[in-house]
Write a protein that binds this DNA or RNA. Sequence first.
DNA 1: ATGTTCATGAAAATCATTTTCGCACCCTGG
DNA 2: CCAGGGTGCGAAAATGATTTTCATGAACAT
Lengths: 131, 131
Amino acid sequence: MPRMSQYDDDILGLLGQSTRFRGCQEIHVRLAERRPRGRRPPSLSTVYRTLYRLAQDGVLDTLQSPGGERLYRLCGTSSRHHHLLCRACGRVEDIARVEELSEVAERIGQDTGFGELDYSFELSGLCPGCS
Amino acid sequence: MPRMSQYDDDILGLLGQSTRFRGCQEIHVRLAERRPRGRRPPSLSTVYRTLYRLAQDGVLDTLQSPGGERLYRLCGTSSRHHHLLCRACGRVEDIARVEELSEVAERIGQDTGFGELDYSFELSGLCPGCS
DNA sequence: ATGTTCATGAAAATCATTTTCGCACCCTGG
DNA sequence: CCAGGGTGCGAAAATGATTTTCATGAACAT
């Protein structure tokens, strides 16, 4: 559990270039390609460690891909939101209807007596460009 | 891609004993324990293959556990529903509010112009007994 | 019988991820 | 200045779920 990494900025910089979610492996090869000004790129282990920590710290947003891979991107400004993934091009769109979902979740909690409710709502489809 | 398996009934029978979701590994050891009337229990490969096929055929319902394991149980009678998983005891409760969610999904589709929408809504919490 | 099909088990292969381990570095106190 | 503790790092091994490969034998058709 490292507290910070010399690669934080590289990773955050890369993620900042787009709003797409990316997997560890992809981030790793991207950083290796760039080979930022002579420095060695981080090892795969380090990318995993760093992404894990940044996600824990709430800096990164994570999403479980259909294939079982964990994807990351910068947290938006909005406190809580969901994502709509284009199955064809991988583009991700933010979903505005957070309140509607949290209301549903709340009602479900009341229905069932469950506490400490946590939920994830993952949408996928074909974006206008791809369909 | 087998079309059917001599173990279908064993697996379906086991799953029919409870409404809990179970992983392949668990099903495999349960079947091995039972050792139904002298027959050899299925191999792990076969359990995986069979569960995969049954899920494809719509006979089984699947759920992605927080730990990344795929869990299965018999499909209920209702065509579409969601689940609430107790993080402590693994119990799963059915969620009735399907229409509310599909309405939200539909509105999202209209908002964004995405088509072929598919979604999953996974809830977890602590059941009344565990909290 | 001979061939073909096909589910099966065992073991190897994958794939994403985590852990281990030794090393190099940096800092701080002596 | 130097020893010692802490810490990030890379490489490789370990893990764990799942998938694939491959040889086999049973069942069925010709």
